[in-house]
């Protein structure tokens, strides 16, 4: 993405409302209970969360603590039982209809009848972009996730990790100001994961996007984030919010520095405490 596009994006966020000009997510006392056959499941219980423009926020926590659910509430794929939430100063539904975000699902969810290029083109076709623009974006984003040359392959001809990268390219191609990513790198090997972590950090730093990122990896969370939200299960809630004020532009070496290890340590303690709380 170019710098002009980035400033244009920043202006777009500014028009969201004067009072909360840079507040992208504002959740107050958010609760969500699934009614299942074996009784209610409290997936989210009084969650408070604020995310400002340009932040990189990671959700980390044990399986089943409601990370995906919280992301889905932000994306208007799930309705909260109580509490309030706004996205870009609008309701999640209005934000979704305004195509305010791009969502990377926990699984690739590519359409098997479309080639890789066709899958990346899908949201662009829906947005009504012309062919030249679509092709430029497909090329740019497939290169970003190292999938250049695989345009004409079908998803089932690719490995699981390559499929997941294609789905990341698909979300990036929309060029949203807000990226919601649900364990996007979970299926990838360590080397590719490092590479994509760096790419994502650079993309975020350059374009001033807001990213909300779910992960199980502490180093990944610390490396990428400005803020780490530690969650704990049953009922799913926010256990701790850890600020992570490393420099915005990071290289993988940063993982050896004392500051990095110190934050990683606090995240680990937070996760342990969340688990212990659960055992009582």
């Amino acid at each position: 993405m170019t710098d002009t596009e980035a400033t244009a994006a920043a202006r777009g966020a500014g028009s969201a409302g004067e009072g909360s000009a840079f507040r992208v997510i504002e959740a107050r006392d958010l609760c969500l209970t699934f009614e299942t056959n074996d009784g209610p499941v409290h997936a989210l219980s009084s969650v408070d969360l604020t995310v400002d423009r340009g932040e990189f926020v990671s959700f980390i926590g044990p399986s089943g603590c409601g990370k995906t659910t919280l992301l889905r509430v932000i994306a208007d794929l799930e309705q909260p039982t109580s509490g309030s939430i706004s996205v870009n100063g609008m309701s999640p539904e209005e934000a979704r209809k305004a195509r305010a975000y791009g969502y990377v699902f926990q699984a690739a969810a590519l359409y098997p009848w479309r080639t890789i290029a066709g899958n990346v083109a899908l949201p662009l076709e829906i947005m009504g972009l012309d062919k030249a623009e679509r092709e430029a974006r497909i090329k740019r984003n497939l290169e970003l996730v190292n999938l250049a040359g695989f345009e004409r392959k079908f998803p089932w001809q690719l490995s699981g990790g390559m499929q997941q990268r294609a789905s990341i390219a698909r979300a990036l191609a929309v060029e949203p100001d807000l990226l919601l990513m649900d364990e996007p790198f979970g299926a990838l090997d360590e080397i590719v994961r490092d590479h994509l972590n760096e790419q994502l950090n650079r993309l975020w730093d350059r374009t001033n996007k807001t990213v909300i990122f779910v992960t199980h990896s502490i180093p990944e969370a610390v490396f990428l984030s400005t803020k780490i939200v530690v969650m704990s299960p049953r009922p799913g809630r926010v256990h701790d919010v850890i600020e992570c004020n490393l420099p915005r532009e990071r290289t993988l070496d940063i993982r050896e520095t004392p500051e990095f290890l110190e934050i990683a340590h606090r995240v680990r303690d937070g996760l342990r405490a969340g688990h212990a709380y659960d055992d009582e």
């Binding site: 979704r96 969502y103 969810a109 359409y111 899908l122």
Partner: peptide, 13 residues
């Protein structure tokens, strides 16, 4: 699948 339909929803299709 519901995920495929959710995907379309996120695009406001």
């Amino acid at each position: 699948s519901s995920m495929q339909r959710d995907l379309m929803r996120t695009y406001a299709a």
